[in-house]
Design a protein around this nucleic acid. Structure first.
Lengths: 251, 251
DNA sequence: TTAAACTATTACGTTGCGTCAATGTCAATG
DNA sequence: CATTGACATTGACGCAACGTAATAGTTTAA
């Protein structure tokens, strides 16, 4: 009932490096070291390793696992309860992150739809194809057909629903923006009005508006030729102008 | 319009160390280095930093941000779309983790309820008090009163609902286990039957049974005195016996 | 006997900085 | 003018949990 590193590693489905690491940090030491320097593990060590892996699978850090074991009164239940609290917190943060990314994507797509519907549809198609090539099978297996399709169709669907209102706002924004650029001053009242229209335009897509995102987005317009071109058609240097104006608007 | 590290750092709300790091990895280099060796940033750098922070807030890694910028055709939208895929994957993994932790906690609590209701209620009370002391205010602020109470009451609620059936199964399990221990062979047919009963017992709490979790849990019984004591009352050395039997059962 | 298979230690790489430590520079004050 | 305090520089370690060599000694099977 004695095991060398690789024996135990294979038995437990981990790498030998992992075992040596656990030895190094004092989480799982071998029963003894044989005369040739080899690590020899016994029954107790197998058990302890199982326990370690049990918690590890649940996402508990090795550090905490160590503390669970070394606590005088072993209480895995309390440990898991605390661990769960951390996990729930992480989930909440992740949800927030996802929501933000999604709303940003939504806004950018909305912008593209406004700027050039045909071009956008071409882009969307390419996007879908790329996803298909890269993740298609995987994703389809994981989430099922309709999830993929749903996510791909959502944008176009939304655009057709609210197209009219959005278009009106866009028109007003573009006009205001054009006049403001002609005046040439990003801090002018007209320019700031354009910023406000742009904000309202964004709120069409965003559930929650933040200054930071507004600044970041307009700055991006300057770097992404698809957006720059669109604004260029409204007025020369328009994207940069809007960026400057929004920077002031949000200050 | 020129900034030294700290000026820019304060302007953008990051640390100077961050800026030096970004310089180090080539993500954001200063416009020039002044004669005294100081980093001097200009307008372009401010913009670029804003962009970096925009993506960083969305959880994009610095490495990827760098690639977004260095790509010949800047395409933040596609980048975000890909990034979102990763985030969704992470969320799914986190959900799985949480579900597993929750079901494990559930099972352990179930075990305690069976073993000694009074003791368990004492434990629950202590648990709640601990949480109160440690996270009480925070958690209450975050999730609201009822979320805390709900999570604390859930277990007891469940136990009262299904107590009868569970008790019957428990009785059968305990009897079988007792006989099996008397025989003394964890690989015996009776012992394996007990394992199967224990599995069914677990399935009362778990939505999804896995061998690994079964092994891990029974092994934990040996380490946690609350469980060991309970099984000890059924038969001497019972927890260890069950662990050994389950190890065989799951092989 | 020799080569394959297994063991060991040492140490760098990963991510995004925080945090010293030692040292140099600048602006203002006594 | 010298000192002091604020700000600048370059290292370099530390974190989490190993993966991945590189180098060298040991055991085992052909």
């Amino acid at each position: 009932m004695e095991y060398t590193v690789n024996k135990l590693a294979k038995l437990a489905g981990v790498s030998s490096r992992t075992l040596r690491y656990y030895d190094e940090i004092g989480l799982l030491s071998p029963k003894r070291i044989s005369s040739n320097g080899y690590r020899i593990y016994g029954r107790n060590e197998v058990d302890r390793l199982q326990q370690i892996l049990f918690y590890r699978e649940l996402g508990v850090s090795l550090d905490e696992i160590g503390r669970i074991f070394s606590a005088k009164d072993f209480d895995g239940l309390s440990a898991l309860q605390n661990h769960l609290t951390g996990l729930l917190e992480r989930r909440e943060q992740l949800e927030l992150l996802i929501a933000n990314v999604e709303k940003t994507i939504k806004a950018m797509k909305g912008e593209m739809i406004m700027s050039d519907k045909e071009k956008f549809e071409g882009f969307l198609k390419k996007m879908v194809d790329d996803n298909e090539r890269l993740y298609g099978e995987e994703v389809r297996e994981k989430y099922g057909e309709e999830a993929v399709n749903r996510s791909n169709e959502k944008v176009l669907h939304m655009s057709s629903e609210q197209y009219a209102e959005l278009e009106k706002l866009t028109e007003e924004l573009n006009e205001t923006l054009k006049k403001a650029v002609e005046q040439g001053d990003p801090s002018s009242e007209l320019a700031q009005k354009a910023c406000d229209l742009h904000r309202r335009w964004l709120c069409f897509y965003w559930d929650k508006y933040t200054k930071e995102a507004h600044i970041g987005l307009t700055q991006m317009y300057v770097y992404d030729s698809r957006f720059t071109e669109y604004y260029e058609k409204i007025a020369p240097g328009c994207a940069a102008f809007l960026r400057d104006a929004v920077a002031i608007y949000c200050k």
